Amino acid sequence: MDPVVHFEFPYDDRERIKRFYTQAFGWEMQQLGEEMGHYVLATTAKPGGPSRPDAANGAISGGFFQRQKDWPDQVPSVVIAVQDIQAAMKKVKGAGGELLGEPMTIPGVGEYVSFRDTEKNRVSMMQFLKPSS
């Protein structure tokens, strides 16, 4: 079973979205630089903090990406962790999904690609880098 590990929301104003989620929910923000597309990481939970009692690992964290004029489906979405992104892409297509481009490398993180499910929802998947021994 491949778990949901991350969420993503687009933004038009980075400072405004950081301020909103920090003030409204107390999330901690880490702003990344130009080399990472001005992405903002959001930490939504800490070990030992409140979470759904039925959640195996508590809550997930996420991030915010800058809205781009030429990108499709810039809406809130989730990221699913997969072991093999190429195999997962074949499964998505075989199940009736539509890939939104080719995987992109996120330095120090892994391979990432978005897709639409059969209901036209935008979802993404990530093959994380293997930890070095």
Rank of each mutant, 00 (worst) to 15 (best):
M1S: 14
P3G: 07
P3R: 05
V4G: 05
V4L: 06
V5W: 06
V5N: 05
V5L: 07
H6C: 04
E8R: 13
D12F: 05
R16K: 14
I17R: 04
I17S: 13
K18V: 06
R19C: 07
Y21E: 09
Y21G: 06
T22S: 10
T22N: 06
A24N: 01
A24S: 03
A24G: 00
W27T: 01
W27C: 00
E28N: 05
E28C: 00
M29K: 00
Q30L: 08
Q31R: 03
L32R: 09
M36T: 01
G37Q: 14
Y39H: 14
Y39T: 10
V40C: 11
V40H: 12
T43Y: 05
A45N: 06
G48E: 01
G49N: 05
P50A: 13
S51D: 03
R52F: 12
P53S: 13
A55S: 15
A56D: 15
A56Q: 15
A56E: 15
N57M: 08
I60M: 10
G63N: 15
G63S: 14
Q66A: 15
R67Q: 15
Q68G: 05
D70F: 01
D70A: 13
Q74H: 11
V75A: 07
P76F: 14
S77K: 11
V78N: 06
V78W: 08
I80F: 03
A81W: 01
A81M: 08
A81D: 08
Q83P: 05
Q86W: 00
Q86P: 00
A88Q: 03
A88K: 04
M89I: 09
K91Q: 14
G94R: 09
G96N: 09
E98L: 14
E98F: 10
L99G: 07
L100C: 02
E102Y: 04
P103D: 10
T105Y: 08
G110I: 14
G110R: 15
V113A: 10
V113M: 07
V113E: 07
S114P: 00
S114H: 11
R116Y: 07
E119N: 08
E119I: 00
K120N: 15
K120L: 11
R122L: 03
R122T: 11
S124I: 04
M126N: 03
F128S: 02
L129Y: 06
K130F: 02
